[in-house]
């Protein structure tokens, strides 16, 4: 416990070397938005692809349109949805966790209280 001057120096150094991000939640919001945009773009691509496939004359054309339109669109949608779910859930779950911890704590307090009362005055 007596290497404290070192501890202060170490602490100062660690604070000094800390990377300061401008709010972690900011990047999260951006990725969330990216997810939404990707889903939107995916739907548009898929619809265009679908229309092209329907209007295509030959099987070859249909396949080409499937590849560029439908498949790419679906891939974008899936990726976008994954981003969206990941970052919206992250926010939600964080609050949820805190809430759970808090409630289980309150509950334990209540139980301890009840047991103490039930066991009579000491």
């Amino acid at each position: 416990m007596n290497e404290q001057p070192d501890r202060v120096a170490e602490f100062t150094a660690e604070i000094e070397s800390m990377k300061l991000k401008a709010g972690g939640a900011e990047g999260e919001k951006r990725l969330l938005l990216l997810g939404v945009l990707a889903v939107g773009a995916g739907i548009v691509l898929a619809v265009i692809g679908g229309v092209q496939v329907v209007n295509a004359e030959t099987l070859m054309d249909q396949q080409a349109y499937l590849a560029t339109g439908a498949f790419l669109g679906i891939a974008l949608m899936v990726a976008g949805a994954a981003l969206f779910v990941r970052y919206s859930l992250a926010r939600y779950l964080r609050f949820w966790m805190v809430r759970l911890v808090f409630e289980s704590r309150a509950n334990a307090d209540r139980i301890v209280d009840a047991i103490e009362r039930a066991s009579g005055p000491r």
Binding site: R7, E10, F11, E14, I15, E16, M18, L20, A22, G23, G24
Partner: peptide, 15 residues
Amino acid sequence: RDVTGVRAEELARRG
């Protein structure tokens, strides 16, 4: 060092 807006865990981990 100006740590305004740094998260509590980050600071706690460092002491």
